[in-house]
Computed example of a mutant assay.
Amino acid sequence: MKVTRNIKCPNCGVFNTDREYCKNCDTLISDKKKRELKKIAVEQKHIDEVIHEMENPGFAKRLKAHPFLLYRIFGWILYSVITVVSLIGAGLAWFIAMVAAG
Rank of each mutant, 00 (worst) to 15 (best):
M1G: 13
V3P: 10
V3Y: 14
T4G: 08
R5K: 11
R5S: 10
R5A: 09
N6D: 11
N6S: 09
I7T: 15
K8Y: 04
K8H: 07
C9N: 03
C12R: 01
C12D: 01
V14P: 00
F15M: 13
N16R: 01
N16T: 01
N16D: 06
T17K: 15
T17D: 07
D18R: 05
R19S: 00
E20D: 14
E20H: 15
Y21E: 05
K23D: 14
N24K: 13
N24V: 10
T27I: 08
L28S: 03
I29G: 01
I29P: 00
D31A: 12
K32C: 08
K33W: 05
R35M: 13
L37T: 03
K38T: 09
I40R: 06
I40Q: 09
V42C: 02
E43R: 12
Q44A: 13
Q44E: 09
Q44C: 05
K45R: 06
H46K: 15
I47L: 10
D48P: 03
E49K: 11
I51D: 07
H52A: 11
E53T: 06
M54Y: 12
M54N: 15
N56R: 03
N56A: 04
P57F: 02
G58Q: 02
A60P: 03
A60E: 12
K61P: 01
L63K: 04
L63G: 00
K64A: 06
K64G: 04
K64M: 14
K64D: 02
H66T: 04
H66N: 15
H66M: 00
P67Q: 00
F68A: 04
Y71E: 01
R72N: 02
R72M: 00
I73C: 01
I73K: 07
G75V: 01
I77V: 11
Y79R: 03
Y79I: 00
Y79M: 09
S80V: 05
V81N: 10
I82C: 04
I82E: 13
T83L: 15
V84M: 04
S86N: 15
G89Y: 08
A90Y: 09
G91L: 13
L92F: 08
L92G: 06
A93N: 11
F95T: 12
F95H: 04
F95D: 01
I96P: 00
I96T: 09
M98K: 11
M98A: 09
A100W: 09
A101Y: 04
G102W: 06
G102F: 07
